Amino acid sequence: MKRLKPLNDYIFKKLFGENEVKDNLVAFLNAVLDRKDRERLVTLEIVDNKELTRELINDKTAILDVRAKTEDGTQIDIEVQLTNQHNMDKRTLFYWGKLFNEKIAKGEDYKKLKKVITINILDFDYINLDKFHTKFHLWEDESKDYMLTDLVEIHFVELPKFNKLEEKNLKEDRLQRWLTFFNKDISEEKLKELMELDTDIKRAEERLEYLSSDKKTIEIYKAREKSLHERANMISSAIEEGENKKAIEIAKNLLDLLDIETIATKTGLSIEIVKSLKH
C-alpha cells in the first residue's frame, strides 16, 4: 500500500477538515499556535465543509482550504500551497479580509467583528527570513511592543526551510513533529518514531493509512494530483512567458548599444530571437 501525500490538499482536507477527524485539527492548531495549558484549544467547529465533488477536485482554481471556528468566535483558515505564484502575501490578505468581513451585516456594530487567523503551509520558500515558521500581527513601527489589535494573525509555515534544518527537536517541538509527518518521503523508521512520540500523529497516520487503502479516495486523489500538476505547469508557463516578454523589451532597447551576442548573453534569449528583433 502506497502512502498518499498528506499535503495533497484533498487528502489534507480529509485528514483535518472533516468532523470525524476534528481531534486531528485541534492537535495541529495547538502546535502551530503554540497553545499550552489553559490556552489550549479543546474543541472547535468545522466551517464550510464543502462536498468534495469530482467537479471541485478537477477545478484547477479550486481552493480546498480547512476552515474552523473556536468557542470564542475566532475564525481559522488553513491553506496548503505547493506552487509559488509569487503573490502569497497579497493572496492571504485578500482571503483574510473576506473572512473578517463576512460575519457582519451592513450597519452592525464593528465590535461584533471577530479575530481571524490564517495559516499558510507552503512547499516553497517565500518569507525573506531564516525561520521556517513566521507569525504576523499589527505592531506599531517604532514601539514594537504595541499591538493595534490582536484581530489579525497570519502564519507562514515553509516546509523547505524546515527540511533543511540540520538539527530538529522532534521530542519537544510538536510543530516539528507535524511537519515531519507531512513529508511524502518519510521513512518507516522515522514514522514509527513520530507515532511513538505523539499519539495525535499516530491517530492521523492511522487515518492516512485508511485513506491510502480506500479505492474511491485513491481515485479522487489521483485526479486531484493531475489537476494540481496541470495548474503548476500553467503557472510556470505564465511566469516564463512574462519573463520572456520582459527580456525581449530589454533586448530591443539594447540593439543600438550592444552586439547581438552580448545582448543574448545579458538577456538569456537565443541569438536567433535577438537577430529577429532587428527586422
Rank of each mutant, 00 (worst) to 15 (best):
M1L: 04
R3D: 00
P6N: 14
L7E: 11
L7N: 12
Y10R: 07
L15D: 05
F16P: 00
E18G: 11
N19S: 15
E20W: 08
V21Y: 11
V26D: 02
A27K: 05
L29E: 07
A31D: 05
A31S: 14
V32C: 05
V32I: 12
L33D: 02
L33V: 04
R35Y: 05
K36T: 01
D37V: 07
R38L: 10
E39T: 00
E39D: 09
R40H: 05
R40K: 15
L41W: 02
I57Q: 06
A62L: 04
D65E: 08
D65R: 00
A68L: 05
A68W: 01
K69D: 00
E71L: 13
G73Q: 10
T74Y: 08
Q75M: 15
I78Y: 05
Q81P: 11
L82P: 00
L82K: 15
T83S: 11
M88Y: 09
K90S: 15
F94R: 15
L99M: 09
F100P: 03
N101V: 03
K103Q: 12
L113G: 00
I119M: 08
D125L: 08
L129Q: 12
K135P: 00
F136I: 09
L138Y: 02
E140K: 10
D145H: 10
L148P: 00
T149G: 08
V157Y: 01
P160A: 04
N163A: 10
K164T: 01
K171G: 00
K171D: 04
E172S: 12
Q176K: 01
L179W: 09
F182H: 08
K184G: 07
D185W: 07
I186K: 04
I186E: 04
E193D: 14
L194P: 03
E196D: 13
D198A: 04
D198F: 04
D200G: 00
D200Q: 08
I201L: 07
K202A: 12
R203M: 06
E206S: 15
E209L: 09
Y210W: 11
S213K: 11
K215N: 08
I220F: 14
H229S: 15
R231D: 09
N233E: 14
S236G: 07
S236T: 15
A238L: 14
A238D: 13
I239R: 08
N244A: 09
K245H: 10
K246A: 07
I250N: 02
N253V: 01
D256S: 10
D256A: 05
I260N: 13
E261N: 13
I263C: 04
I263Y: 06
S270Y: 06
S276Q: 07
H279I: 12
